[in-house]
C-alpha cells in the first residue's frame, strides 16, 4: 500500500515538474484561429511543413473569429488567423494588429435538408434563398457566436432586408456554438445552416443535409493573418510570429494551402498579394 501510494505520488509529482517544461526546448508560437481552419484539417496539413522548415512549433487555439480576436486583444496569442474582414480591420484600427495580410479564401455554402421546405435547392442567389427561408419560416440554425461565419451570415440577412431576430424562438435558432455543433444541430432538426465549405466537407454527421445554395459571389470567404502588435503586448514573439506570417503568404506556404484536399475537393484557395 505504502509503496503504491508513493509510486502514484512520485508519478504525479514528476508530472507536475515536467509540465511547465513541455515543449519548452522547442520555440513555439500561439496562433488564435478559427474552428473552420482547425476542423477542416488544414492545420494538420500545413503546420508540419512549416515546423520542419523553421523548427518553430505552432500551437493553435481554435475558436470563433470574435473570440480569436479577443484572445489577440488580451495578448494571449502571437498571431491571429481569422476570416471576418470587418472585425479584422477594427482590430487593426484599435492598434492590436501590426498589418493584415490576405492569405486565402474559400466559400460559404447554404446546407439544408433534402426535403427542402423553402424550395431553394439548386439556386445560386443566396439573398433570394434567405428571403424564401424567412417567408416559409423554415428552420434555420445559426451559430449565434460572433464568429466570422456568424458575421457573414448576419450581413447576408441584412442585405436581404430581414431581421432574423423576429424569427427567434421560432424558425431562427441560435446554437451559440461552433460550426460543427451547429451542423450537428441542423442535422438533427433538419434545419438550414450557413457554413464554410471546409468544415462542411470534413463534417461527418450530415444526416439528411445537402448543399442547397452555392456559387454566389456574396459567399466569398476571405481569410486574413496578423501579427499581434508587440507595442501593445511586449511579450509577443515578434520574430517567430512574423516568420509564420511571412511563410504562410510566401510562394511555398501558398502552394501547401492549395495542395490540401479532401478527396478531390480543394478546400482553400490561396490569394495572398505579395
Amino acid at each position: 500500500m505504502a509503496v503504491m501510494r508513493s509510486a502514484v505520488l512520485a508519478f504525479a509529482l514528476s508530472g507536475l515538474l515536467q509540465l511547465p517544461m513541455a515543449g519548452a526546448q522547442q520555440p513555439f508560437i500561439t496562433v488564435a484561429s478559427t474552428t473552420s481552419t482547425e476542423q477542416s484539417g488544414l492545420f494538420k496539413h500545413l503546420l508540419p511543413v512549416f515546423e520542419k522548415k523553421t523548427g518553430i512549433r505552432v500551437r493553435v487555439v481554435a475558436q470563433g473569429t470574435g473570440q480569436a480576436l479577443d484572445m489577440g486583444r488580451r495578448g494571449d496569442a502571437d498571431v491571429v488567423f481569422v476570416h471576418d474582414r470587418v472585425a479584422e480591420e477594427k482590430f487593426l484600427a484599435e492598434g492590436f494588429g501590426v498589418q493584415r495580410f490576405e492569405v486565402m479564401y474559400n466559400d460559404f455554402v447554404l446546407v439544408g435538408p433534402k426535403s427542402d421546405p423553402a424550395k431553394i435547392a439548386g439556386g445560386r442567389n443566396i439573398i433570394e434563398a434567405y428571403k424564401k427561408i424567412a417567408a416559409a419560416a423554415a428552420p434555420f440554425a445559426s451559430r449565434g457566436d460572433k464568429s466570422g461565419t456568424h458575421a457573414a451570415e448576419l450581413r447576408l440577412w441584412k442585405m436581404a432586408g430581414i431581421d432574423p431576430q423576429t424569427g427567434k424562438g421560432g424558425w431562427y435558432r441560435e446554437t451559440g456554438s461552433g460550426m460543427g455543433p451547429t451542423l450537428n444541430t441542423a442535422s438533427a432538426m433538419n434545419a438550414y445552416a450557413f457554413t464554410d465549405r471546409g468544415t462542411w466537407l470534413s463534417f461527418r454527421n450530415r444526416g439528411d443535409l445537402v448543399v442547397v445554395v452555392e456559387g454566389d459571389r456574396q459567399l466569398f470567404n476571405q481569410y486574413g493573418i496578423m501579427l499581434v502588435n508587440p507595442a501593445k503586448h511586449p511579450h509577443v514573439k515578434k520574430d517567430l510570429g512574423q516568420a509564420f506570417v511571412d511563410w504562410v503568404i510566401s510562394a511555398e506556404g501558398q502552394k501547401v494551402i492549395a495542395d490540401y484536399k479532401i478527396g478531390t475537393d480543394q478546400l482553400f484557395f490561396p490569394n495572398a498579394k505579395r
Binding site: Q39, M179, G180, P181, N184, F203, R204, R206
Partner: peptide, 9 residues
C-alpha cells in the same frame, strides 16, 4: 468535444 464538432460521433 473536437470530434463531436467535426460530426464524427
Amino acid at each position: 468535444a473536437l470530434e463531436t464538432s467535426k460530426g464524427d460521433l
